[in-house]
Structures are given as structure tokens and as C-alpha cells.
Write a protein that binds this DNA or RNA. Structure first.
Lengths: 315, 315
DNA sequence: CTGTTCTGTTCGGTGAAACCGTACAATCGG
DNA sequence: CCGATTGTACGGTTTCACCGAACAGAACAG
């Protein structure tokens, strides 16, 4: 393989014409230049220089290699510039893992804003539930995740950086005209005879729903278990069930009523990135876009923690 | 500037995925690969690798550099291949310096043949008289010259290689119907009252014409001195003069009569190249084309030397 | 839970290379 | 002929690439 330093010397020789000038330009001694060019000749097994009088001339082979070498060096410089641009400008691919209820209310608006402000930044949205997003972030499937630190099963190591985003209220979702809808807040105990819709088994919201119901003294009767919150809302909309959902998941276009619980429950919503990833301008731009959510029904910053504290404070 | 060896390791890492595999493929130790990649990171001032578990993953920056690096390495390999092709295949530019009388009878037919047999070989014909062609060859203006070793003013050093091509008879050129044309060979002494056309002052043929005339006991009366042999032949054709010319210069389409001298005079015609240039296939192809002259009025190999012997035998 | 075996990295040491300064040969100019 | 300038050859020094061993973390089998 060719050596870029030697190619540079040859390329300089073509433009400057003399070994001494090359040496001065490259801040080397003339002997070094001569030696390196000789090495290049043995490496390529081609005569590149022709000694003519007291100066040196490029052979056709030398001329060819000098010109191609310059192209190669230019390409190297270009690659280096692109490399630095990648860190300094918000461009390139960023994969954002978001749990389902935050997709349309948080991630999509952020992505829309980013598409106009940073057209060269390619954002890839991935639906990742809290129990999946941690490993995905570590393995590199995602560069940024929006998740909850209340999730009990996962520890956030020192390699990850937590950026608190706010808290998401857990609300009771009722069909319009439901008897419980007349009150501003509802006690869960009043729902013990209701039919429930909830997320799929083992999912975060399914576990939470069951736990809260049990804490209120009853076992919920479940009518459906849908991973898709839109289907779940339709089920409630149709008067077939009620549900506990994060407020983020309920968009205005659904004909349902949401009511807070009499003992309010929130879950922490946090951005997590791999430590060191924040040096990328693109990552920072996405994080900033996520934190800036004007159209969002304000995420109250006060929150009642459901799980244990994160093992690492968000520095 | 980037280092090609390190780029190769990064590029290999992208395809192989693991440092160990890269080390094996590159016939290096794993520690070396790790170190070199670390050097690449400090050189670029970018994080290229991300340690994830017990293996390593490329960052977006690393991925970019790996791909661009592969392009660069491919280009290097391509350049190297072109370089060797330049020596092994008859391609590229070859500049051929030829004295005037050999242009249309020797050089142009050879160039025509070469154009069909070696389309990628670009031959550039340069009119160079014997006194010019030596320096031009040495300075690199020409890669091959066709000249005469009989020329007295020049020494052929050890840096040049002589390839004898044949000998060119010096003939007397007469207008059709000229009284001297009745004989098969003419003695120069019989021409002492003629009007002469010859080459420009100081040129090879002008000097030769004067010398031969003086040896025959008279000073030629010169009517014109043209550097262009075609004009010179027209002058003779018109009956205004006679001339001494190399047989090569007289093509059949001219309405003139050529007669040999009673004491025949030849001049040596030789190909000269810079020693070492013969390693180029293109140069060899041109030399071969020049030596192969089917349509040429045979250059007799016997010759009567006009000047001193070349200082170097054509080995 | 524990040892085993992968992973990549760190460390001290070694040989090769890149490099310098000097000396030298050749060339060009005056 | 002499001085200026060219490229090169030769010794010595510094830097770099490399290795092998030791190490630390992670996956995995028992």
C-alpha cells in the first residue's frame, strides 16, 4: 500500500519542481525528501524521478502518481473536513428510541421542527418501550432514548447520561358520558367494578395499572390487552372499557374524557444518551428539540416517583 | 494528514467488526491495532470507536471515516495499478523527435500503424533537427529521437542508448529532363556550374552540401535556403535549381529525378533514447514501430560514415 | 455463583523508520 | 576557475510501529 506522506512529497515535487523547495515547504531536510522519494520508487518498483543535470524531473510514471496522489490527498482532506463537520454541525443519522405514548405528542413534533431547522439531520424514530430502550441504547441501536427512570428493572450506569424532561401524569380515560366523568378527580377505588383496557402483559403500563388497582383494593377485570394505544383508546371510546394511560398518549382527537386520580400519579420522563455522545452537534440538536415542546400539554415538573431513584444523578 | 495504514485498519474494523479479526487479517497483534486506532482518534480529534461491552463499535464519525477511507484505499490501489500498467502496457504520452526528412517517410507511417495497434498510446511528433534533438532528449522535451550519429557536434553519453536504424543515401535531386539525369550516378564535380537549393545556414544538410561540393573542388552557387524540404523540392521541380537531399526526404509525388553520387554518401540514421526509458512498454512499442518500415525504400545497412564514430557503442 | 473464555486495552521493551546535519559530486553561472 | 546551487550518500539520533505479557470487563457454561 502507498504511504500518504511520501505521496505528498511527490505531489509537492511536481508543483515545486525541486527537492529543496519541497523540503522547505514540508519543513524537512533535503536529504529526507530525497530518501523518502527513493523509498517510494522501491515501493512502487517504478522509476518516478529522472536525474537530469543538477536537478530532477518526473518520469511519466512519476507524473501520473503525483497527480493521482494529489487527488488522493485532496480526498483525505475532504474526509477529514467531513469528519469535523459531523461533530460541529447537526448532520448525519440520529436514532431516537421513544416509548409509544410519547411518539405522536413528543417525538413527531420534535422531528417535524428538526426537519425544517436542520434539513441535513436525519432523525430515525424507533418505538422502544422502557424495558427495551436501555439495552438498545447501550448496544447502539439507538443514540437517544426517551424513557422513564421509574422503571424498576434497569440501572443507569455511569456510561449513560440522564437529561430530565418532565413528568407525565397518569390519567383515567373514560368514555364520554361515563358516570365517573362528573368529578374533576377520581379515586381508583371507585372503579373497582369497571371493565379495563390495558397494555399487553409484562408491559410497563399493564404492570402499573394492576399495581395501582391492587393498592386500591381490587383486581381489575381486563377486557382487552392491546399494545397499540390508539386501538386501546378506540375501545374506551366505544364504551367497552376504561383505562389508565399516560396523559401524553391521549390526543384531543379522541372522543374520550380524561380525569386525574385523586391521589395523583406521575411518571418521570427522561432523555438518556450515551456519555460522550453529547459532543455531537446532531445529538444535542435532537435533545434540544425534545426539551422544547411548545404545543405540548405542559409536563409538570413536580412528580411523585413510582420506582426507586436513578442510581446516577443526572450530573 | 491521515495515515493510510491506520485508515486501512479502521476500514477493516468496519467490515470485520472486531479488533482481533482485524489484527489477524492485517498480520498484526491486537494491541497494535488498538494502539493505531487510538492514534487515529487523537489525530482526527474525534471519537471513532465506542467501547460497548467487551467489543467495540464504530461511532457515526468512525463509520464515515471508515467508508471514506475505503474509497481512498481503493483509489490508491487503482493508482498503483495504473502505474504498473503504464510500464507494462503501451499507453501514455511518448514524444518523438524526428529530423524533417524522416517525418513523412518514417515517423508518420509509424505513427499511423501505432494508432491502430495501440490506440491508448499517444504519440507526439516533434520536428527536431540533429543539432537540436540531443539536448531535447536529455532535457526531457522528447522521449525518443531519430537523428544521425554522423553529426559532428555532439557526444552521446552513457546515459543515452543508441539503436541503429539504417543508413540514408544522400542523392542528387534534379528537375525532370535535366541533362545530368541521363546517367545512373552523377559525379558532384559535374555539377560545379549548377545553381543550388539547400537547407538554411548552419543546418546539417546545408553544411554537408557545402562540404561535399568543396571536396569536389567548387563553391556551390546557392539560389535559395529553405528549412522546408517540400518548398525546396518545389524549387527544384520548377527547374530553378538542383539539390543534395537525403533519399528519405524525396517522396514519389514530386516531379523530380534522383540520382546517386558516383562516390556514394550515406548518413547513419539512429534512434536514441534515455537509458532506462526502454523499460516503458510504450517507448518500446514506438521504437519497434520505427524499426519496422515495410513501405520504406530500404535503408541499406552498409554505410560510409561521414563523421566520427559515436563515443559509445550501441551495446 | 464461579471459573473459563472471549473481548479490548495498558504497559515496558525492541527494532525499524524517519529524520537531521554534514560531506560530497555534479551542474550552472560568472 | 570559483562560488552558488543542485541532488545524493553516510553516520547518528529520535520517533514510531510493533510485540508479548499482563490486565479488566463481559459473556457464557457448568
Amino acid at each position: 500500500m502507498l504511504h500518504s506522506g511520501r505521496l505528498r512529497l511527490l505531489s509537492l515535487l511536481e508543483t515545486l519542481g525541486t527537492v529543496r523547495a519541497v523540503a522547505e515547504t514540508a519543513h524537512l531536510s533535503a536529504s529526507t525528501v530525497s530518501q523518502q522519494l527513493a523509498v517510494l520508487e522501491t515501493e512502487t518498483r517504478c522509476r518516478l524521478l529522472e536525474r537530469t543535470g543538477r536537478r530532477v524531473r518526473l518520469t511519466p510514471a512519476g507524473l501520473l502518481l503525483a497527480r493521482r496522489g494529489r487527488e488522493i490527498l485532496d480526498q483525505m482532506a475532504e474526509a477529514e473536513a467531513e469528519l469535523h463537520a459531523l461533530n460541529d454541525e447537526p448532520i448525519g443519522l440520529v436514532r431516537l428510541g421513544v416509548f409509544q405514548s410519547a411518539i405522536y405528542t413528543l417525538a413527531v413534533p420534535a422531528a417535524t421542527r428538526l426537519a425544517t431547522t436542520h434539513p441535513r439531520l436525519h432523525l430515525e424514530l424507533i418505538e422502544l418501550e422502557p424495558h427495551e430502550s436501555g439495552p438498545a441504547l447501550r448496544s447502539g441501536e439507538a443514540d437517544i432514548i426517551v424513557t422513564t427512570t421509574d422503571y424498576t428493572g434497569l440501572s443507569w450506569g455511569a456510561d449513560l447520561e440522564l437529561i430530565p424532561l418532565g413528568s407525565d401524569q397518569i390519567v383515567l380515560v373514560l368514555p364520554p358520558g361515563h358516570p365517573l366523568a362528573c368529578r374533576t378527580t377520581v379515586s381508583l377505588a371507585a372503579c373497582k367494578d369497571e371493565i379495563w383496557a390495558c397494555d399487553r402483559p409484562q408491559s410497563y403500563m399493564a404492570e402499573l395499572t394492576v399495581r395501582l388497582c391492587r393498592e386500591s383494593g381490587f383486581e381489575p377485570r381486563v377486557a382487552c390487552r392491546f399494545g397499540n394505544y390508539l386501538m386501546l383508546l378506540r375501545h374506551v371510546e366505544a364504551g367497552r372499557s376504561i383505562a389508565l394511560l399516560p396523559a401524553l398518549a391521549v390526543t384531543p382527537e379522541h372522543a374520550v374524557v380524561t380525569r386525574g386520580l385523586s391521589t395523583p400519579v406521575h411518571r418521570n420522563v427522561t432523555i438518556v444518551v450515551r456519555r460522550g455522545t453529547t459532543q455531537r452537534a446532531a445529538v444535542n440538536a435532537v435533545v434540544a428539540a425534545l426539551r422544547d415542546h411548545p404545543e405540548l400539554p405542559a409536563l409538570s415538573t413536580s412528580h411523585h416517583r413510582l420506582g426507586r431513584e436513578p442510581t446516577e444523578p443526572p450530573r
